[in-house]
Design a protein around this nucleic acid. Structure first.
Length: 281
DNA sequence: CAAATCCCCTGCAGGC
DNA sequence: TGCCTGCAGGGGATTT
């Protein structure tokens, strides 16, 4: 799956889509060679170190936590990939695709998995199991895809940020970004600028359910979250059908017809937040 | 503890 | 035509 050059912005559904494509390509293969075309993305190892540790290793599994992708190299060694804005994968290509940064060459088909990253904001870390656990514990709350109302309430209990800003803090809940936080709040009928700790029990139940359903639907659509309608390149229809508020300023709410508004709020001061002033309270 | 700011990076749109 | 600015955005580090 490619990333933003095709209009995708990796949040949880995009990461899940990548993992589902990577799993049948990588699991059970041995990484023969790693071709590192851009050392910039290796943040905690040199190309030599990375190759020495990973080459010859069997891939035991491919996992996702929040927006992060994990390769289990077996024997307690992991590659953590944060695609950030424009990271993505291409499978089985013989020649380097545009913006190729790294290639895992495999012992059997599809023989190659490429990591591509147009803007080079992505991060790749080589981690022992205990370091990975520490990182997840420090930086990641529970995964948004399976969040339940009780967990959500606990995570937000002492948080006074606007609920949308809180939902985007990965250490509270992992996986939501700008787009799906907005969409979930619209489905739940909650204004994005409400302080998180003022949500009532019934609102938290609606919100937890909305987060799960928005993410599940986006995964079913293979993570169709377009950032930029100007470069949507033909998939524009699907994108517009899925999104209720994101990037829809002035357009009618699909539920009540009121014009979608945009605003700025504390914690997200230089970004717009879209919402329906009638449906969301 | 929360918020703001800056930074990483590239492509593209809009203004002049 | 070409240069400049702003914007998109995840997320870490640093400052207020």
């Amino acid at each position: 799956m490619q990333a933003a050059e095709e209009g995708y912005v990796p949040e949880l559904p995009e990461a899940e889509t990548m993992v589902r494509e990577l799993r049948p390509a990588l699991v059970g293969r041995t990484i023969r060679t790693v071709r590192i075309l851009d050392a910039f993305l290796l943040k905690n190892s040199s190309p030599r170190q990375y190759r020495r540790r990973v080459e010859g290793r069997y891939v035991h599994g491919v996992h996702r936590h929040g927006k992060w992708i994990l390769l289990d190299h077996d024997g307690g060694l992991w590659t953590l990939i944060q695609p950030r804005m424009t990271g993505g994968f291409r499978i089985g290509l013989r020649h380097r695709p545009p913006h190729a940064r790294l290639c895992w060459e495999l012992d059997r088909p599809p023989h190659s998995v490429w990591y591509t990253d147009l803007r080079r904001l992505g991060v790749l870390l080589l981690l022992e199991a205990d370091a990975l656990q520490r990182l997840l514990a420090e930086r990641h709350g529970p995964d948004a895809l399976t969040i339940d109302a009780r967990t959500l309430r606990r995570r937000l209990a002492r948080c006074r940020s606007p609920i949308k800003a809180a939902l985007m803090k990965q250490e509270l809940i992992a996986g939501l970004g700008n787009i799906y936080a907005e969409e979930a709040l619209h489905v739940a009928g909650i204004r994005p600028d409400r302080p998180a700790d003022t949500l009532q029990p019934d609102e938290l139940r609606r919100l937890a359910r909305a987060i799960r359903s928005v993410l599940r639907r986006a995964i079913a659509a293979q993570g169709t979250s377009f950032r930029d309608y100007r470069t949507a390149r033909g998939s524009e229809g699907e994108f517009q059908r899925l999104l209720n508020v994101y990037h829809r300023t002035g357009q009618p709410c699909r539920r009540c017809g009121a014009a979608i508004q945009r605003m700025k709020m504390s914690g997200l001061i230089n970004r717009y937040t879209h919402f329906c002033p009638r449906c969301q309270r």
